[in-house]
């Protein structure tokens, strides 16, 4: 037999390949950081510029203000009134209300659909159901907002007799439609990747399919489901077009879910194009953007922490 001759591998090629890959990874990281830096930079005048501070300082945004002499102090977001009011509390409440309804609506549906698709559907049905639910993610949010504004709001008002046609429930439900595919995909993937040997073990002990799904597969898939819920919540807090169209955009403080709401993201979208460049209103909107950014970051961090904790609990290794 002929002796084989192997060629040496090019060191240069390896080096260049490695560098290109690390550059692409860092490019994503750096751009996220630069975006944050830019947004934050535009909001700095709130802390430094004395003129702007007089109109919209941090405590004016956070605490009750007596806007007119002799009147009750209150939280109010009215940046364009004669006495500009910049309380951001109503906006936060609005954002959380919409996200809460969205999650309450989406998580049970998405997880339920994932259990069905991963555990009970035949292969053919699964190949049909899964892409269609995931297609929901492809619907432009303006279309979902349109549906909410024109169709769902009227329907809900007719059925439940809401005082305000556009309210937190209406916006939250459609926001939920945008969240469902995210939670569904992650939950379904987590469940299908639970090893078949665990299912076999449970079946061999006399468990039926329901018991296998709920007592073995679901707990083992919890870390993945938690990650899906985190991502979904991030989407719900940040989503703009749906809430802009469907929520009524009333910046009020109320515990009721049938009142109109105004979210942080919708406020930025609606007002940024109209503000005086570099003015107080402009800076406040960028400050809101910064807060939204930090909020999403913290939520993801908490979600990551929860996912890891669940991994430890349900997939073992340490205790």
């Amino acid at each position: 037999m002929r002796k084989l001759q192997f060629r040496g591998k090019s060191k240069l090629f390896e080096l260049v390949g490695e560098k290109i890959i690390s550059i692409t990874a860092f490019a994503a990281l750096i751009s996220v950081f630069l975006i944050f830096l830019f947004i934050f930079k535009e909001s700095i005048p709130i802390f430094t510029d004395s003129e702007i501070k007089q109109e919209a300082s941090v405590d004016k945004m956070l605490f009750k203000q007596e806007y007119y002499e002799g009147r009750q102090p209150r939280f109010s977001w009215q940046p364009n009134s004669d006495v500009p009011k910049y309380s951001i509390l109503p906006l936060f409440i609005g954002s959380f209300k919409a996200a809460l309804i969205a999650m309450l609506f989406a998580v049970p549906l998405a997880v339920g659909a994932a259990i069905f698709s991963a555990e009970f559907a035949s292969r053919r049905l699964r190949e049909f159901v899964k892409p269609i639910i995931e297609l929901l993610a492809g619907i432009p949010s303006v279309v979902l907002g349109f549906f909410s504004l024109i169709v769902l709001a009227t329907f809900l008002q007719d059925v439940f007799g809401f005082t305000f046609r556009l309210n937190a429930i209406n916006a939250g439900i459609v926001l939920g439609l945008a969240v469902i595919p995210i939670v569904f995909t992650m939950a379904e993937d987590a469940m299908t990747s639970v090893p078949g040997s665990l299912r076999d073990a449970a079946l061999a002990l006399g468990a039926n399919r329901w018991q296998v799904s709920l007592t073995v597969v679901l707990p083992a898939a919890l870390p993945g489901i938690a990650a899906g819920i985190t991502l979904g919540f991030g989407r719900a807090i940040g989503e703009t077009m749906i809430v802009l169209m469907a929520s009524g955009n009333a910046a009020i403080i109320s515990g009721s879910f049938v009142d109109s709401i105004r979210t942080i993201s919708a406020t930025i979208a609606a007002e940024l194009a109209e503000v005086v460049f570099g003015g107080a209103h402009y800076s406040v909107l960028f400050f809101l953007g910064t807060l939204l950014f930090i909020l999403t970051f913290v939520l993801n961090w908490i979600g990551d922490y929860a996912t890891n904790a669940l991994k430890l609990k349900y997939q073992g290794r340490v205790k």
Partner: peptide
């Protein structure tokens, strides 16, 4: 039944 690969539940 006992399986080839040990498969304890998590």
């Amino acid at each position: 039944m006992v399986f080839q690969k040990s498969n304890p539940f998590p």
